[in-house]
Each structure stands twice: as C-alpha cells, then as structure tokens.
Design a binder for these strands. Structure first.
Lengths: 236, 236
DNA sequence: CACTGTGAAGACCTTCACAGCT
DNA sequence: AGCTGTGAAGGTCTTCACAGTG
C-alpha cells in the first residue's frame, strides 16, 4: 500500500526505493527481490487456477516456491490488499492485483534479433504464445539463413530494425547474436524504442536510459552453478 | 541476478561470522551476490587478457561491469589477496585466484536433456567450446527427432540417462524439455549424479539434496522486464 | 481460529573513509 | 602517488511475533 510519507531522494546504486508521484515522493516499499518473487508467484497462480483451485494460503505458496510465507505476505501487502479469508488468498484477486500492479494484462509485442539456432528456437517458442507476449518479428544479417527458417513470423534484415520496431510497436527484444554484433544490434533496438532486452549473447550489455536489460549467458550460468558447489553454498 | 535464491550457508576461508540458517548457526564468508559478481569478473578478465592487457584496477573493473569499485575490492579481498601494484591487480593472478577458489580450472562434462529446437541449439552452442565445459551427450525421448539432428555429440534415449551420466562422469545438465517431462527427467539426472541443472523448461524445479538448480524461464524473464518498467524501477 | 497484515528487530550487503602497501 | 584492503557505518531486505480480521 502506498503511504504518502514525504522523504528525500535516495539514490542508492541499485535501487530507488522512493518513487516520485506528482510533487511528492511516495514510498513504494517494493524492492527488486519482491518484484522477482511476485512475478514468480504470478506464473504459479495461473497454473493453480487452471487446476480449478480458488484459494491459496501464504504457507502453500511458500512450499511451492521455496520462499518463506512471511516474506510472501509482506510482498503482497506491499502492493495492496485483497480478498482473503478462511483458505487464504483468493487466487483470482491475487492474480489481478499482481497483474494490474505490474501491467501484466496488457499484450506486448516482442521481436527476436539474431536467428541462428538459439534465436530461431526462441522465435518458435510455443510457451510465449500462451502468455501476454507476442513474437511478431525476427531480424538477422544473413539472408540465406533467413530463407531457411520456417516460421509464420515476418523476418527482416538488421538494417530495418529501427524502422520496423517503431512501425510495429515492438516493446521488448530477445537478442541472440554473435558477441561482435551484440552492442551494435542492441543500440539499434534501443534507437527503435524497445523498453527491454533479454540478452542471450555472450557479452554484457549495460542498462541505458531506462531500458531494462537482462543478460543471460550460458557459460556464466554454468560457472555460477559450479562456483556454488565449490563453496558448498546451499540454496534454501 | 539475483536473487531470491541467495539464501544460504557457505564455508569460509578466513574470517568467520555466524549466520543463522533455520535453527542452526553456520560459518560464512562469501556471500551469494559476491559469488555472482566474481563469476562475471572472471569472464571479463579472460577477455581482457586476450586483448593483451596485464593489469587492471578496481575502478576499471567497476566501469566495465557497473559494479562499484569498493564492492569489487571487498569481494576480492573476501577470497584472498594477490599481486597488485601500480596499475591495479595483475590480471593473471586475479584470474587464477578466482578460478582456484571456485574450481574453474577443472574441466567439467555437461549434457543436454531435451532436444527440441532450444535443446538442439544448446547442444551446438559454440561458446561452450571455449570454456571449461564440454558438452558430451544429449538425451531425448523422440527417436525420430534424434535422427534429424546433426551433431558430433552422441545422443541417447531418456531411459539411458542414469546409466550414461554415471558412466561418462557428467556433472552438469542443461534441461530443455516440455513442462510435463521436466520433473521426471530432472529426477533421472539427479539419480545419475549430476551436481547442477540449468533448467530452461517452463516449470520451477526446486533444489534438492545439494544439487544446484537455476531456473530460466523465458516468459518470466520478459515479465520481469515489463514489471521493472511498470514500477519505474531503475537499474544501477 | 486459521489466516493475513505489519511494525520492529535483526541479518545481510554495500558503501565509506582511510590506513597501509608498493 | 596510486592503488588495494578493511573495520565501521549505513542501507536494504528478511524474519519475527503478534495484533487484527472475516
């Protein structure tokens, strides 16, 4: 719940905890880890709802996700309060609280840049079709490769990125290109106006002008797993 | 990124502080976020070394990664101390400090389970070849599909997972199967003795008996990007 | 009375400031 | 002089405990 506690600007390096709304600074109490957890809960709720369930308690959610029930309640109370009673939260209300807070109801258009095997696999990812994300374009630099890909999604050359991203209203991009191309292609996507990039290329792309970036680098993820083992790190 | 999974216990090398985990107090020294950052630094150092550089300062590392120099120095000092002088850390020494702490020198065998487009792309990932990870087997349930895949890596049916993982000494698995198969296949991999799973299937697999798991779910990653935008969240 | 909601306490992580080394 | 190394301080996030609620 939003409290109108007047507070100064705090620019911590990783987080803005205070959000400016109009003239006032409103404490949102919503932290990055909380956003991550609530996003995971959302996927879980969709599944539970399909199973015909109507209510679910923080304890149940906890054992399904591995998060502590305490933490889940706190996260939920940070974004609002909802119908709850004997068996816990109403799944429908919780779902719509999360989706309205984070804008999950709205459909969003996505493109894939880089159509080697990994990119082509993303282009045809069946899972995206069941979500609010719609993959509506693919880009590559290699005409021959593009001709060999079988897909219903229209494909274009890299030099059309800016034009098509604007024209089609693409908001998010999945990037799967060679390390050499990554920075240049990312810049074109940003110039076109995407708001976020999921980067699977083996290069770190730094966040820029409010464009959200997630870098997912296969070898680094494997290294992290092995580092966790080497230090006997125990995930809860 | 981090991460909600960052809960846990660690074995320490030097200075011990007590950390509470459940009811127990365990010794701890190196934190999850630090392991993540050091892993990223390692990839970066490899690249810098190829460029012929010999020394690098914490400030330089900071601007390349977006981390604060303070934080980087602290992370490094948590795992040991090394040759440093005028221009900063010796790249070679820093590299070998990180790799010996986390066991990155040792070669590790990896398999891919699930050979639809995404899995097949992982199987042929050229990047893995330049790392300490070697992909030496693929598994699937569909014989026809397996015959259509062109690769040098030997492929087997799911029912051989336990046998082959043991026989070949496979330590890590990349999982890219349907949501229905995910849990069963993961159990077979664990029964065979893998120590970590990188799960790209649209299902959360919970960590179990010290087997490290990273769940990377395309739609959820896109949702996180859009949630960050919806809350005006600013990354560093 | 089984559940949520939440201030307060505490664990954890980052940042700071400066001593210490080269 | 330039850079690292690190206790201490300061933020952030999680956990606790119990009040509040249908």
């Amino acid at each position: 719940m939003l409290t109108a506690e007047g507070k100064g600007v705090k620019l911590s390096v990783k987080y803005f905890t205070d959000r400016r709304v109009g003239k006032d600074f409103m404490k949102t109490n919503i932290a990055f880890p909380a956003i991550e957890r609530l996003t995971k809960l959302f996927s879980l709720l969709l599944k539970a709802e399909q199973g015909g369930k109507e209510k679910i308690s923080s304890t149940e959610l906890g054992s399904l996700t591995g998060f502590h029930a305490h933490n889940i309640r706190k996260d939920i109370s940070a974004i609002g309060s909802i119908e709850s009673g004997k068996g816990g939260y109403s799944i429908k209300s919780l779902e719509s609280l999360i989706s309205s807070t984070f804008g999950f109801e709205r459909k969003k258009k996505v493109c894939v840049a880089g159509l080697d095997m990994l990119g082509a696999a993303m282009l045809n990812n069946p899972d995206a079709g069941f979500s609010e994300f719609e993959i509506i374009a693919g880009f590559d630099s290699n005409i021959n490769r593009m001709e060999m890909i079988s897909t219903k999604v229209p494909l274009f050359h890299f030099y059309k990125i800016e034009e098509k991203v604007k024209e089609l209203g693409i908001e998010y991009a999945i990037l799967a290109v060679s390390p050499e191309e990554a920075a240049r292609v990312a810049e074109r996507l940003i110039a076109g106006g995407v708001k976020g990039i999921l980067n699977f290329s083996p290069v770190i792309i730094a966040p820029k002008n409010g464009v959200q970036i997630r870098n997912i680098y296969l070898v680094e993820e494997l290294r992290l797993l092995s580092a966790l083992n080497a230090t006997n790190f125990q995930q809860l």
